[in-house]
């Protein structure tokens, strides 16, 4: 299996006719961990949702390819089956659909017709993955995200990621609402999946998560584009000095999208 490559070229994204992402380029290869940091309202989550194909986000220009295939012409489910995964900040709740049923349907969709995992094997795999993430076995039969705490929802996102073994995993503020123990579990799961077969794009406010998942690259987003890139020391620098120092250095007064005039 060759190492995947996600290439984003000069991407522009609008929500309700307002441009949020304003020409962003980034390449993520298998085995790499990219962290995108930045204050609120700078377009980080918009980038994540647009890559996954959320219908409320329209890409107005630019190109996104996964292993040379045009991602932007794919429907949401096609993107997922091609190997893109987004751990969402606000996962939907679906009553009446059990977690196990959902996960099996998703896994078999990813594996493709004729290659479905037998039920018993699936349940064994699920039990193991749940154990790794310290998730209670009753979780499998509960309805998808219904009545889950914030932390349970996040762990469920990570469970899905580790089952689906994506080529490119995007984690959108996976650390929000997690206590330190849950944060470590999530980090362990990411580190376990770390291989030349998977690339990561980790979106976060804080450097905290990056103590456990050490990134190869750190990018800072402001005003809808990447304003600075570096290695893990950039995250440490931001943690020590805050975003204000960087803003002064770059001559940015207000970092939020739409305030650049």
């Amino acid at each position: 299996m060759s190492s995947p490559v996600l290439t984003i070229e000069d991407l522009r994204v609008s929500v309700e006719d307002k441009e949020i992402v304003k020409g962003l380029s980034l390449q993520i290869k298998g085995g790499e961990i990219h962290a995108v940091m930045g204050p609120n309202g700078t377009g980080k989550s918009t980038l994540a949702s647009a890559l996954m194909g959320h219908p409320a986000y329209s890409v107005t220009s630019g190109r996104v390819t996964l292993d040379g295939e045009d991602v932007l012409t794919m429907s949401v489910d096609e993107r997922a089956r091609a190997g893109l995964f987004l751990a969402m900040q606000y996962p939907a709740e679906v009553s009446g659909v059990s977690n196990a049923n959902f996960l099996r349907t998703a896994l078999n969709a990813r594996r493709g017709e004729g290659n479905e995992l037998p039920v018993i094997k699936f349940h064994r795999l699920l039990q193991q993955k749940m154990k790794d993430l310290n998730i209670d076995p009753s979780f499998a039969e509960r309805y998808l995200n219904e009545g889950f705490s914030g932390g349970e929802k996040k762990r469920n996102e990570i469970l899905q990621m580790s089952l689906l073994e994506p080529k490119i995993a995007i984690l959108d503020e996976i650390d929000s609402g997690l206590d330190i123990d849950a944060l470590k579990l999530v980090a362990d799961a990411v580190n376990q999946l770390r291989s030349p077969q998977t690339g990561f794009l980790i979106i976060t406010h804080y450097q905290r998560l990056l103590q456990y998942i050490v990134p190869d690259y750190v990018h800072v987003m402001m005003q809808g584009r990447i304003v600075k890139s570096g290695d893990k020391t950039l995250a440490e620098y931001l943690e020590a000095n805050g975003y204000d120092t960087l803003k002064r250095e770059l001559g940015i007064v207000d970092e939020t999208v739409g305030a650049e005039a």
Binding site: D77, S95, N101, F102, A106, A109, Q160
Partner: peptide, 24 residues
């Protein structure tokens, strides 16, 4: 939002809708 969530895990729209309806 539910349809999007299921599709984002690789489930085609028709099947996602069917799952949600069956959920009710």
């Amino acid at each position: 939002n539910q349809v999007y969530y299921l599709m984002a895990r690789g489930i085609p729209r028709a099947e996602a809708e069917r799952m949600i309806i069956w959920g009710y």
